[in-house]
Simulated assay, not measured.
Amino acid sequence: MEEVTEAVNNLTIAEGAAATAGAEGHKKNRIQVSNTKKPLFFYVNLAKRYMQLHEEVELSALGMAIATVVTVAEILKNNGLAVEKKIMTSTVDVKDDTRNRPIQKAKIEILIGKTEKFDELMAAAAEEREAAGAEEEQS
Rank of each mutant, 00 (worst) to 15 (best):
L81R: 00
V83E: 14
N29F: 01
K105N: 14
K37V: 08
E15N: 10
L46T: 07
T20N: 15
K27H: 13
K85L: 15
A106P: 02
L46A: 09
L59N: 08
L62P: 09
A14Q: 09
M51D: 05
K38N: 11
N79K: 14
F42K: 02
A7K: 10
I66A: 07
K48H: 06
L81G: 01
T98G: 00
I108C: 13
M88D: 15
K77G: 04
I13Y: 08
K48A: 05
M88H: 09
A73Y: 01
Y50V: 01
Y50T: 03
A67S: 11
F42N: 02
A73V: 07
K86M: 12
A67N: 04
Y50R: 02
G16M: 06
K37Y: 00
E6C: 00
E6I: 01
L62W: 09
L11Q: 05
V44E: 05
K105H: 15
V4K: 03
V70T: 12
L62R: 10
D93W: 07
A106D: 15
K86Q: 13
D97I: 14
E74R: 12
Q52Y: 02
V83Y: 06
V92C: 04
G63L: 08
I66C: 04
G22V: 01
E2G: 10
E58D: 11
A106G: 05
L76K: 11
E74T: 09
T68E: 12
G22I: 02
S90I: 05
T98A: 12
F42G: 02
K105Q: 15
T12L: 05
I108R: 11
L59V: 12
D96L: 01
G25T: 06
K86I: 06
H54S: 12
T91V: 14
A18F: 04
V8E: 02
K38S: 06
N9V: 02
K107D: 04
K95Q: 11
N100G: 15
A67L: 13
K95M: 13
F42A: 09
T36N: 03
T36R: 07
N9H: 03
M51E: 05
A21T: 09
I103D: 06
A14V: 10
K107T: 02
E56V: 11
I87P: 01
A18L: 11
E55T: 13
A82S: 14
E6R: 10
T5I: 12
G63Q: 07
T98M: 13
T20S: 15
P102S: 06
A73M: 07
G22L: 08
F41A: 01
T20H: 15
N100D: 15
E56K: 15
G80D: 07
H54M: 02
N9T: 00
N35H: 14
R99F: 08
A14K: 11
V94W: 03
I103M: 07
E24S: 13
G80H: 06
E109T: 12
A18S: 01
T12I: 07
E58N: 07
K27N: 08
T89D: 08
V8C: 06
I75L: 13
T12G: 05
M51A: 11
V92I: 10
K37E: 13
D97M: 12
H26W: 09
D96R: 07
N10V: 00
Y43L: 02
A23D: 10
Q32H: 04
G25N: 09
Q52C: 03
V44C: 10
V4W: 02
T36D: 07
